[in-house]
Design a protein around this nucleic acid. Structure first.
Lengths: 333, 333
DNA sequence: CTGTTAGCGCATTCAA
DNA sequence: TTGAATGCGCTAACAG
């Protein structure tokens, strides 16, 4: 591999001059520039990013830490972030935190140690306090999908409370009065927020929240199925069910079908996230949109503007969910 | 940020000694080790990965280049690779090639310049020749999902021809004699291979391959739907349809339903990949497994063994698809 | 077992 | 506008 030194020798200039033309950041006469470029070409010179980072303490790469690398949720987000940053000549390093506090911290350290200029985090296991501390450090951070009040200017998030509200309000408008619910795992903030929205919608409609009609799931399909079974066993009548995400709603519908219940005729079911599914599925799941692409784009833009001083599209931090009424919900008979 | 120098001063030892305890690769007396560790702790010392790479020309990170970061295909693969490598203390840098030759080449360069110790590539736009050349370079490479004969020892792939064969054979065993097909985009090797398997199965059963019963799709759901419509318009009867992946099969089934055809009663439909879908979908898609997790794991193990000299599980390079008969295929009446 | 020394490839003063 | 010198933080011989 040719080094900057080889180029300088071949071009008959100093090493510093080569550096100048490579970085294009200082006056270089057209003539010497030509010589240098020719030498670079001839030697197939490619700057060593590692050495460059060490010397300049700037890597032109940003670290992105997500809880998982697969699944319908993070894929589009990563894709969007990569796309925006890459178009700006920046690079992206992804890591997975696996919803484990140790691992999340270790990943943050890894990305910092790799010299990332900024960190985009979509993680859930670490504490708010940790994040607040982290934000005070050298490396700028942005949070996706998490609201931490002391550093709210670093947070890009969906108004989950409002989403939970919309889902339940939709059912109420359809005439449902007994609405069951399968929440997400309540140690997660977004699950609590969605549940809070659910309760607010009930309250505004003058309906009583009945804890016996609300079970806790873990966001997996299976827990949706088990959840609806538990609800059904209680023999407490309900005509609608809100689930804290699409996967649990899928499981719940499967559970209903197994018990001979028809959706939405016997039971209306709401999801949350509005993720894509095969075209021929029936019924199509009513849901609440989760603009994960947009949040990814926004995080990337935030970094571009605040870390790299590139002006660009205006920034938004808070996103509003939108109701997506489809086939799995219907009027209460 | 504390440096190795600060630690050495605080511990009252030389800089080299600190390096030794950090890397744990040479004899250090228990006593000095303790001193050093204490100093490291006190200073919250974290080695600078950049400097370390520069000095050792080894980064303990491997680059993974995939065509996309989202979708059901690459997610699980990336996840698996990250998991295996991470457990071995190695790190992973992902990049997206977007099925564009320029971009794929640029991404390879990026990963090389970042000092990756090895590259795992799941890309399709670059030529075989390019890959052969690349394999001769400094950075070891492994190919996933691509068979390039001159460097076959670097290839981890699914026997797509056999998969295509299994899919069609399944339909033939069910008594179908007129079998239509929606292939993948034929500029892609795996699409061609699956089609070849289809033809072989037909031939072995003494059936004639009818080009008019075979249309080309692009692996997207929409092209499956359009494909089946085109096939149906021809008024050439067929009782079964093989699709080169699950997404197109989904689109095809949706198209059938829209035309009042029932699957599998009126038409049997086969997919390929066997990707997970919501539990309540009907009919469940008969398919051919694509052990993408396994291939990811294998790629990671290859790197561990060949690049980092870590012994581990035995390596396999060629994977056999398995037929997954479910509900979308049935006996020919 | 430990310290000294010389780079890794480059950016960046400071002079010229 | 250009060159010489210094150092980023660390590893890796080489001595001792």
């Amino acid at each position: 591999m040719a080094t900057i030194y080889d180029v300088s020798v071949m071009a008959g200039v100093s090493l510093a001059t080569v550096s100048r033309v490579v970085n294009n950041n200082a006056k270089v006469s057209e003539k010497t520039r030509k010589k240098v470029l020719a030498a670079m070409e001839a030697l197939d010179y490619r700057p060593n990013a590692i050495a460059r980072s060490l010397a300049s303490s700037r890597s032109n790469s940003v670290g992105v830490l997500v809880s998982q690398l697969d699944g319908p949720y993070h894929g589009p987000m990563m894709s969007m972030i990569e796309s925006v940053l890459r178009d700006a000549g920046k690079h992206v390093i992804f890591a997975a935190g696996r919803s484990d506090e140790e691992r999340e911290r270790a990943s943050v350290s890894f990305l910092q140690d790799r010299g990332c200029d900024a960190l985009v985090l979509d993680i859930e296991a670490v504490s708010d306090d940790y994040l607040v501390e982290l934000a005070k450090g050298q490396t700028p951070i942005v949070l996706i999908n998490r609201y931490v009040e002391p550093i709210e200017d670093r947070c890009i998030y969906l108004d989950n409370e409002q989403g939970g509200y919309l889902a339940t309000e939709h059912l109420i408008k359809l005439g449902h009065r007994s609405i069951a619910c399968i929440s997400g795992p309540l140690y997660k903030l977004d699950a609590r927020q969605r549940l809070a929205g659910h309760k607010r919608a009930l309250a505004e409609a003058g309906l009583q929240f009945d804890p016996r009609l609300c079970v806790e799931g873990n966001f997996d399909q299976r827990s949706g199925r088990e959840g609806v079974n538990r609800l059904l066993e209680q023999k407490r009548p309900f005509t609608a069910l809100v689930c804290a995400n699409d996967r649990m709603a899928s499981g719940a519908i499967a559970g209903c079908m197994a018990q001979g219940l028809s959706v939405p005729a016997d039971l209306s079911v709401m999801g949350y996230d509005d993720f894509p599914v095969p075209e021929y599925i029936t019924p199509k799941l009513s849901s609440v949109s989760n603009p994960i692409h947009e949040m990814g784009k926004m995080a990337a833009n935030w970094v571009l503007q605040h870390v790299y001083q590139l002006e660009g599209a205006p920034l938004a931090r808070r996103f509003e969910p939108v109701l997506k009424a489809k086939e799995s919900t219907g009027m209460n008979r």
